[in-house]
């Protein structure tokens, strides 16, 4: 039964952790951090698919998540559309936007691709700051509560359950996708675009699909974040948020299914742990990134896999 739906040990472990963890939460603040971790994990799964599997760097996903969030919020507050439907419209809009920009952008490679996505991201963040009549400018705007068919999400536990289910569901679909012929096509693009092309794969078509998918996931997570926190500001769409997301993915481990979650959770919790260091927070944060990139450039998940590999080897 489980096998047929490909619910493997990893997904069961993840679910178990997500169920057990709340028992250790002492107050709402713990929930808050956990929910933000889950939402960041979601964005990072999409970004990992783009960067780690298809090999296309994006330094603009924070901006895409932020813009998606703004669209959903503005539809709700200015036009009175229900949250679920406004997220749906935001997803469609962002998917079309991503598809249009994917064609010229994903033709670029390496550094050029990084700079182009960065450029798009910064332009988005500037527009959100400047168009204050629509977005509230740099002060941001408050967001109505999240209701689905009359059922209101007002407790942290409700949000936690929603985000946890969403994450498990996404990672399940993602695992299936990566292990399907579609996933093989993505990995072949990272391996050699020429090889992929030579067996009949329309490389730019698949790059566009993954890019759109990753933007869609970012939009969903970005909108949910806005509804959860009851507030949205251009800092969600800032350059530093985009960078933060990329760091999460690389830190966790590019091309490792669970790397994105590991990276997202660590980098969401880390700044909270560092608040006690006050002035030294940024300094330590930077130092940790440098440290990880020097000593484990393939990410934390790879260290774990290496350890597992060694244990198995010694057992034999």
């Amino acid at each position: 039964m489980l096998k047929r739906y490909n619910i493997n040990r990893d997904i069961l472990t993840l679910s178990a952790i997500l169920i057990i963890v709340p028992f250790f939460f002492q107050n709402d603040f713990y929930y808050e951090i956990a929910i933000v971790s889950l939402l960041n994990s979601l964005i990072c799964i999409g970004l990992n698919m783009l960067m780690g599997y298809a090999g296309q760097v994006s330094l603009g996903h924070g901006a895409f998540a932020g813009l998606g969030g703004y669209i959903a919020v503005i539809l709700g507050s200015k036009y009175g559309i229900t949250p679920l439907f406004s997220i749906f419209i935001a997803v469609i809009t962002m998917a079309i936007f991503a598809f249009i920009i994917s064609k010229p952008i994903l033709r670029l490679k390496g550094h050029y691709l990084a700079m182009a996505t960065l450029g798009v991201g910064i332009i988005i963040s500037i527009v959100l700051n400047v168009e204050d009549e629509l977005t509230g400018g740099s002060d941001g705007m408050s967001v109505d509560s999240f209701t689905v068919f009359g059922y209101e999400f007002n407790s942290s536990l409700q949000w936690y359950v929603l985000c946890a289910i969403l994450l498990v569901f996404t990672i399940w679909m993602f695992t299936n996708l990566i292990n399907s012929p579609f996933g093989r096509v993505l990995r072949s693009i990272e391996g050699s675009e020429k090889a992929a092309n030579s067996v009949g794969i329309n490389v730019s078509h698949y790059k566009s699909i993954v890019f759109v998918l990753s933007v869609v996931i970012a939009t969903i997570a970005g909108s949910l974040y806005a509804f959860f926190s009851g507030f949205i500001s251009p800092s969600e769409a800032s350059f530093s948020h985009s960078i933060e997301l990329v760091v999460m993915v690389v830190l966790g481990g590019l091309g490792r299914i669970y790397g994105a979650i590991i990276g997202a959770v660590i980098l969401t919790i880390l700044p909270q742990l560092l608040t006690s260091f006050e002035d030294y927070q940024t300094l330590i944060y930077g130092a940790i990134i440098i440290f990880v990139m020097i000593f484990m450039p393939k990410g934390i998940a790879s260290v774990y896999e290496d350890l597992k590999g060694r244990l198995f080897a010694s057992n034999k």
Binding site: I243, V246, V247, V250, L251, T282, L283, Y285, G286, A287, I288, I289, I290, M293, I294
Partner: peptide, 9 residues
């Protein structure tokens, strides 16, 4: 990412 980390540092 290393140079980004250095920038933050």
């Amino acid at each position: 990412i290393l140079t980004l980390g250095f920038a933050i540092f």
